[in-house]
């Protein structure tokens, strides 16, 4: 037991030293915290985005007032400027009073019906989309964005673990280790412990940077704990499947499809097809983080751990075979 502990701490210490020498730890921390800082800066802007209306100068003050109650009004000097503004890519409808005194609505043509309906409602002084309107509730963009970001901060640590294994194989360090008393399980426990601890720390630190002192750090830590097996899964796929850095990149590219698309699709309205996401651990991981951010218990992250666990076990067996074959 004492020997095993010494071997595990030796490998963990070696991994941390290599990570420090190659500045991997610095980049992992800086990259995640930088993104968390950017999220803190930009997500409120995105959430506070108001509908925009382009209005021809000289339009009745009452119309402008009604539109300002529903969004932001941009005044255009002449009709050509109004048309040019409407043709920009941000779905801002145009309004003007034509020569016959009729209220003219200018659309580009690809606006969603909801945009057209809310513009008409605002111009008519009906209940507008902002504040007190009876339109569909706005999606919680900030919580969705943050949960995806924190999930990414935790899971991407797996890349450092996987690429570390690939580099050990390429550099011959793995062959050297095979003639020491080190056992495979000690090697793996060290890898999983270092990446798990780093992932947890990073998830909580990123939440603190992105949200501040108000962040429910306890729930976020629990959600991050549930996501850690996905971090291991990510690292083990790279470590077990790739024999060199190019193959590692190919493995990451293939895996990213599931790691990114399942969580994003989970926030869409899938109707009766939502059950299809059940076996996808990344979906549950992000849902757990989303619950934690909303002050709820992150039970979904437990599902993430349960669904990822068999994959982690299978990949450990595969990695053992690869390591044995390589040495």
């Amino acid at each position: 037991m004492r020997r095993a502990w010494a071997a595990i701490s030796a490998i963990a210490s070696k991994d941390l030293k290599v990570a420090r020498r190659d500045q991997v730890t610095t980049y992992v921390l800086a990259g995640s915290l930088l993104l968390a800082g950017a999220a803190r800066l930009f997500l409120p802007l995105v959430e506070g985005t108001q509908p925009r209306f382009a209005v021809l100068e000289g339009a009745p003050a009452a119309l402008i007032e009604r539109l300002e109650a529903a969004g932001r009004v941009e005044l255009c000097a002449d009709e050509a400027a109004l048309r040019a503004r409407v043709l920009e890519q941000d779905d801002a409808p145009g309004l003007m009073v034509d020569e016959h005194g009729a209220l003219a609505l200018l659309l580009e043509g690809d606006e969603a019906p909801a945009v057209v309906a809310s513009t008409m409602a605002a111009a008519r002084s009906e209940a507008a989309t902002q504040g007190g309107g009876d339109g569909p509730p706005r999606p919680p963009i900030r919580a969705i964005g943050l949960s995806l970001l924190l999930y990414a901060a935790v899971v991407l640590v797996g890349s450092a673990m996987g690429l570390g294994i690939v580099e050990e194989r390429e550099s011959g360090a793995m062959s050297a280790m095979s003639v020491t008393p080190l056992r495979f399980r000690e090697y793996v426990i060290a890898k999983l412990a270092v990446s798990g601890a780093l992932a947890m720390t990073l998830g909580v630190a990123a939440a603190w940077v992105a949200i501040g002192a108000a962040a429910p750090l306890g729930s976020i830590a629990l959600a991050a704990l549930g996501i850690v097996p996905i971090t291991w899964l990510f690292g083990l796929v790279i470590g077990a499947a790739a024999s060199n850095q190019l193959a590692a990149m190919a493995a990451m590219k293939g895996l990213m499809l599931v790691l990114v698309s399942a969580p994003v699709v989970g926030f869409m309205d899938l109707g009766g097809w939502a059950w299809l996401l059940t076996p996808f651990a990344p979906h549950w991981g992000v849902q757990g983080m989303f619950a934690a951010l909303n002050g709820q218990a992150p039970w979904a992250a437990l599902w993430a751990a349960l669904w990822a666990a068999p994959w982690v076990a299978g990949l450990l067996l595969l990695l053992r075979r690869r390591v044995t074959a390589a040495t």
Partner: peptide
């Protein structure tokens, strides 16, 4: 090596992918 390059490249890729929500909803930009 790739392990030290991965994070800066991932951050750059995430910045590049900020165009995705702006493509889905142009008002994002």
């Amino acid at each position: 090596g790739l392990s030290s390059f991965f994070y800066p490249a991932a951050v750059a890729s995430m910045v590049l992918s900020a165009a995705v929500p702006a493509y889905v909803a142009p008002a994002f930009a």
